[in-house]
Simulated scan of single mutants.
Amino acid sequence: MSSPQPDFLGPDVAYQATPQKPGKPRRPWRATLVVALLLPPVLLGSGWLAQSDSTLLLLLGVIVAMVALLVAWAYAGAGPGTFVAIFGLAFMLFVGPAMAETFLDRQGVRTPAVVAGFGEMSPRYDRARTCKLVWEDRDTGEIGRVETGGLSACTDDIKAGDPAVVVVDPTGWQFPRMADDVESASTTTWAVTGGLFVAMELMFLWGRARKFG
């Protein structure tokens, strides 16, 4: 007859822990790469949405940009993330109008128009008036109307009934504008935009390096 087995291990028996499976190593570079690559095009798209003549699309662009900057702020940390948000917002405010002005100058359809009247851009400035333009679409024959201009385009020497030139966005994305008010973004504007882009990305990478460096 076999001897009974003890119900417990004595104090002299060393305790051996069950070996644990090693967990998956953290790979913060994946999230860093995704956010760093997606943030610029998201802000660029938001800036382009803000140039639309639709208020709804403008608000959508602002909301998308705020969400993207909030995510970048959270990933970079409070300190660097604040700079990421500041540089990112400035980048969006520069790149949106720069793209819109350049596109309208190069791709816009210049159409003869007539000055039908005037309006005021701001009551604080006597000379900041707008010109009400009327023109006929070359392709459809439809009559187009817009109130546009300002100090740079709708000058005091323009009278009602004078001929003018209106630049129409072929995609219908932007408001038509007077030809004298349309000009591609300058080299300085693009240089500032590029500098803001680089600063935003460097601040984000610095914040991630502080977290996992």
Rank of each mutant, 00 (worst) to 15 (best):
S2W: 12
P4D: 13
Q5N: 06
D7E: 00
F8A: 14
F8C: 08
F8I: 12
L9Q: 11
P11W: 11
P11Q: 10
D12W: 10
Y15L: 13
Y15A: 15
A17N: 13
P19H: 13
P19R: 15
G23D: 14
K24C: 10
R30A: 12
A31Y: 12
L33P: 03
L33K: 04
V35Q: 00
A36P: 06
L39H: 05
P41A: 14
P41Q: 08
V42W: 06
L43E: 02
L44C: 14
G45Q: 01
G45C: 07
A50S: 08
S52D: 08
T55L: 09
T55E: 12
L56W: 13
L56Q: 14
L56F: 11
L57D: 13
L58K: 10
V62M: 11
I63Y: 07
A65Y: 07
M66S: 10
A68P: 11
L69H: 05
L69I: 05
L69W: 04
L70K: 10
V71F: 08
A72H: 11
W73K: 10
Y75H: 02
Y75P: 01
Y75N: 02
A76G: 05
G77P: 01
A78D: 03
G79C: 04
V84Y: 02
A85W: 01
F87H: 00
G88S: 01
F91E: 03
F91V: 01
M92D: 03
G96T: 07
P97Y: 11
A98L: 00
M99F: 15
M99E: 05
E101H: 07
F103Q: 07
D105E: 13
R106A: 09
R106N: 09
Q107Y: 08
G108L: 03
G108S: 08
V109Y: 02
A113W: 08
A113F: 12
A116N: 12
A116M: 12
A116P: 08
G117P: 02
M121R: 05
S122M: 01
R124G: 04
R127C: 02
R127A: 08
R127W: 04
R127Q: 05
A128M: 13
R129L: 07
C131F: 10
C131W: 04
C131D: 12
W135H: 06
E136P: 05
D137Y: 07
D137W: 02
G144P: 09
G144H: 13
V146W: 10
V146Y: 08
E147M: 15
G149R: 07
G150T: 06
G150I: 03
S152C: 13
S152K: 07
A153K: 05
C154F: 07
T155I: 09
T155V: 12
D156Y: 06
D157W: 03
K159T: 09
A160E: 15
P163I: 15
P163C: 11
P163R: 10
A164S: 11
V165H: 05
V165C: 03
V166W: 06
V167K: 02
W173H: 14
Q174D: 08
Q174H: 08
P176W: 01
V182I: 14
E183A: 15
E183S: 13
A185I: 10
A185F: 07
S186T: 15
T187F: 10
T187W: 10
W190K: 12
A191H: 07
A191Y: 02
A191F: 13
L196Y: 00
F197P: 00
E201I: 15
M203Y: 09
F204C: 11
L205I: 01
L205K: 05
G207S: 01
K211S: 03
G213C: 02
